[in-house]
Design a binder for these strands. Structure first.
Lengths: 94, 94
DNA sequence: TAGATAATTAGAGCATTGTCTAAATATCTA
DNA sequence: TAGATATTTAGACAATGCTCTAATTATCTA
């Protein structure tokens, strides 16, 4: 979970995830949405891969990335619970 | 929101928040739960303050910190939406 | 097989982060 | 007012992160 939270703490990587939520994209297609080098894009994709948030699929010369739904949902669950515990505390007090 | 996500990407700060969700604590009381110096604890509390996730209250020589509920809930909402959009996409596809 | 294209890896530069000790600030109490 | 206690700030240090260009790897195609 640590790698997931670090992964989504960077704005570029959150934007990558937002784009991939809409559709699978190649590295080149992804990079059209940013002002960074291909090497930097690879760096961010490596972090997302390390957190198992994305999955690469080679097709010819291109590599297409897509969201790893199961990890994405696990992360959602963790973060939601982390924050909602406060709501629970509030109810206890009232 | 950026500062909030960076704030919760650190394990020490998440643990601080978990402790404060249960009850307001002074810096010294908080620090008993960690193996770091008081200066490091101050550093983390500064980050949490910068994200408006916690609120300090001086009482005598001690400073008590508590969760800033409204920001905490805003952050929850943001993160939930960020992750749940993927669920929405899944439904579209099915 | 060469050359072109797509992506990753290597290596360096610079900023940021988390840690520490020491010094400074704020408050209490004798 | 002095000394003690609680916390923050200053300054330094090592590790990590994001960026770049250049080189490397993998694939396709003529």
């Amino acid at each position: 979970m640590q790698t997931v939270l670090e992964a989504i703490s960077d704005p570029t990587r959150r934007k990558i995830l937002e784009l991939l939520k809409r559709s699978e994209l190649s590295v080149g297609e992804l990079n059209e949405h940013f002002d960074i080098s291909g090497a930097s894009m690879s760096h961010h994709l490596n972090k997302l891969k390390a957190a198992h948030l994305v999955i690469p699929r080679r097709q010819g010369q291109s590599i297409y990335y897509s969201i790893n739904t199961s990890v994405f949902e696990d992360a959602a669950q963790y973060v939601i619970e982390f924050f909602q515990a406060q709501g629970a505390k509030k109810n206890e007090q009232s």
